[in-house]
């Protein structure tokens, strides 16, 4: 065997080991991300159940749960950001991503329902937005709408945005779509119960919100 051939074989071995190590490390990190998402979701599931139970226990003073609900919504938003990043990294066809999205959507629906119940019981006026998007190539304005909603959520903390993948195969989500009569072009929105769809500009979109809803002050209790 010539020196060059021997060197080439050793170099090939080194390259394969390095590449294998890199692929392993990237997979390890991606799995760690998924594990962290799962862990956050598990925690949020407990928190949601806890809030639900707290709400039931405090029938006489349900409004003590408002603070917990607000914290939960904020944590849910953070989870959503992480999930979107992971989906971007691993692709929207990744089975684990789809499973986590389903769990996340369920948590969102539960939080949405708790928020509505708290609003009815305590007289708060939260601004809720149900946002239905699609990653299947049938929603050209979804990127713009998603970015605009991120901006609004970050700017107006009282805004509660719940994002749902319209095509996610989840019974509870299909029921929500049916109940809110979501149809036609995506993106679709339900802002404080009022349905609209399509997205042009942020300025036009802001007009869909109730007057005074987009202010930086915390909404007052009745």
């Amino acid at each position: 065997m010539t020196t060059s051939l021997r060197n080439a074989l050793i170099a090939l071995g080194i390259t394969i080991v390095l590449t294998g190590t890199v692929i392993y490390a990237v997979n390890y990190l991606n799995n760690a991300r998924l594990a962290e998402l799962k862990s956050i979701e598990d925690q949020l599931t407990i928190d949601t159940l806890s809030l639900d139970t707290q709400f039931s226990l405090l029938e006489s003073a349900p409004c003590d749960s408002v603070a917990s609900s607000t914290t939960l919504t904020s944590e849910l938003a953070d989870l959503g950001t992480r999930l979107a990043y992971t989906e971007n990294q691993l692709g929207n066809n990744n089975e684990q991503v789809i499973r986590l999205k389903k769990q996340y959507s369920l948590l969102e629906i539960r939080d949405y329902l708790v928020t509505k119940r708290l609003a009815a019981a305590c007289g708060t006026k939260p601004v809720t937005v149900l946002y239905f998007y699609s990653n299947s190539g049938d929603c050209s304005a979804c990127d713009k709408a998603g970015y605009a909603l991120s901006y609004l959520r970050d700017t107006y903390p009282q805004l509660r945005v719940y994002s749902f993948d319209y095509h996610l195969d989840l019974g509870a989500l299909k029921t929500l779509i049916a109940v809110d009569k979501i149809r036609g072009e995506l993106p679709a929105f339900v802002i404080n119960g009022k349905y609209s769809n399509g997205f042009t500009t942020l300025a036009d979109f802001e007009k869909e919100f109730p007057k005074g809803a987009l202010s930086t002050s915390t909404p007052k209790k009745k």
């Binding site: 060197n7 170099a11 090939l12 390259t15 590449t19």
Partner: peptide, 15 residues
């Protein structure tokens, strides 16, 4: 990377 490894291995070889 293969080529760089090849250079490194060659540097260490007897010639």
């Amino acid at each position: 990377i293969f080529f760089e490894s090849f250079v490194l291995v060659t540097l260490l070889s007897k010639p």
